[in-house]
Design a protein around this nucleic acid. Structure first.
Lengths: 336, 336
DNA sequence: CTGAAAGCGCTTACAG
DNA sequence: CTGAAAGCGCTTACAG
């Protein structure tokens, strides 16, 4: 049987209240007592029972990470492993644990009940949700601390995002400045905020340069490799000279479609994409892409959420990280 | 405030013991009472407090999934998302939740304490461990139910595996039967059981066909795309006519290296790989590969683990799933 | 078939 | 600075 507070207390010659105070960093313990208790804890490799703590104190040091399972990109996009790694790593450092929820529609009610009422989670991180997903409203209506990765267009929530609009705008401007007239785009799903904002950034760039928006140069993808492939095949007959693609993973699929059509990159079609995943530099040709700090976002979401938990009354956090265009081969150079 | 058992009991006009029995499927409740109680539960969307249940009953309906964070392939190999999805999905169906532990060496002691002593987990699934990882021994020494994905060479544990040796053997035999003399291999790490067994399968095939083993035709990878690339570059000067690669993801890297060297697939170098990830069929050329049911393995691990939890005394489970060679373009056809 | 009661292992006012 | 005690919300022998 695992040891209990009581066991430690006996060995240290104090009450279990004192042991509890030591463990929870309460100031009001004599330094000498503290040391003695910590010694005994160390020696026994003691770990307090989380369930008991949760019941008594109402906290568990467990955070939930919710990702919709429906997103087909979850299998092909390194975004998710990177994000999960960032979340996990920050949790470890802060003595929190991660509960992973792949949100499947058929279990959504169960999931929300568990999250909101089971008392298992101190807070929740939500990533890559559809904008109209009722989960966000449910969380917002509850007392449960949570943070979105990706801003929300209508509900005032804590969120962490990258500057998608400006990233996409810069990427598109770069292609326009290189002299391309027919700059197409492969978008993400328009019901995901990241997909939406990146498309808006594309439009903004066209507008700034006085280039007319041409609907036939827009092809919607789903952030997956296969979706990028299909979207590019629809685009090729429109003879774009360049294309801004809303994710590296879709770009991989698009490159495949371009190659199959017997066209060259960047000579026939120049490409700029988004994410700067580790694979972008290894691609053939290497991808010019907008770098976002995915791993760091995961970690920052954790730290912000913990801060939210500890300061329940504070204002909503709106954190927007800058992005950066990384220029490689796929966009080509100035057309002369 | 969330409702408690007591609230439900009052509304239903019974004691909280009876409500508890209904929730936990105890037979000894009159059908009529059961219906009444279930009605009240439904109406209130009641969810029992997990911490309290855990403390009282010693179970949480939470399973842990441990994956070593050190594996570089975790970012590039769709194996992990697929496995996680399988685990998550099966847990949802069985009313369990998933705690994800990316095992980072610096936090390993903390992790083991939490897993073994915090009372948070009913059981643990461990995937892709190094063979000599002390986690396995720690779990084995504890009372905590657990199952390995991938067999263990020396410790008698519950495990679920695919027939790696025979899969690799079939893959290699296929290349030999096509008439190749110099069949190379890119292995996985030899301190991971999957990497080891697949290399043994390669050796077995050579032996069966009376082909001498040539160490210069063996190049070790790490299950990542980049590792496959590097390993293939070492192999190309040895002029292999074919290569068996221990994962699809490494094969992607190897294809890149072969292309860069100006060689054709399969005409100059034939390729067979392992996993049959969704990307294998989309690759150019499409990959001949050994199919393993990754998603199903995740789900089966969950169901087996739950069974282990419910039958603590039973014999150790050793489940080995069959694999199947899927023939596509990358292996070419009979040389004439 | 049902209820009263003990107890799971913590935290935290409260009193000193 | 420390301890005795109440209480968190469940489960489960035990008694009837």
């Amino acid at each position: 049987m695992p040891l209990t507070l009581e066991d430690i207390a006996q060995q240290a010659g104090v009450s279990r209240a004192t042991v509890s105070r030591v463990i929870n960093g309460d100031e009001n313990v004599k330094a000498q007592t503290r040391l003695r208790v910590m010694d005994v804890i160390q020696q026994n490799n003691f770990q307090p029972n989380i369930a008991a703590r949760s019941l008594a104190a109402g906290r568990t040091n467990v955070l939930g990470l919710i990702i919709p399972a429906g997103v087909s990109a979850i299998f092909t996009d390194p975004y998710f492993p990177l994000l999960i790694q960032g979340v996990s790593s920050a949790c470890n450092a802060k003595d929190y644990s991660v509960m992973l929820w792949l949100a499947e529609p058929e279990y959504e009610r169960r999931m929300m009940r568990q999250i909101l009422h089971s008392g298992l989670l101190d807070g929740v991180i939500v990533s890559s949700m559809l904008m109209d997903d009722p989960i966000v409203q449910s969380l917002h209506d509850s007392k449960k601390p949570f943070i979105l990765i990706g801003r929300h267009p209508t509900i005032d929530v804590n969120y962490l995002d990258v500057d998608n609009l400006n990233g996409a705008r810069e990427a598109t401007l770069h292609l326009l400045r290189l002299g391309h007239k027919r700059v197409a785009t492969i978008t993400g799903p328009q019901d995901m905020i990241g997909g939406y904002d990146r498309f808006q950034g594309y439009l903004r760039a066209l507008e700034e340069r006085g280039v007319a928006y041409q609907p036939e140069l827009v092809s919607q993808g789903d952030f997956s490799e296969a979706g990028g492939y299909t979207a590019m095949r629809r685009l090729i007959p429109m003879q774009p000279g360049a294309v801004f693609i809303a994710s590296d993973t879709m770009a991989e699929g698009a490159l495949r479609a371009i190659r199959e059509a017997g066209l060259r990159i960047p000579q026939d079609i120049a490409v700029v994409s988004y994410d700067d995943m580790p694979s972008a530099a290894r691609s053939t040709p290497s991808l010019t892409t907008v770098r976002q700090p995915t791993h760091r976002m995961g970690a920052l979401a954790v730290n912000t959420l913990i801060d939210i938990i500890q300061h329940p009354g504070a204002n909503k956090r709106h954190i927007v990280l800058p992005v950066e265009l990384v220029i490689r081969e796929s966009c080509g150079t100035l057309r002369t």
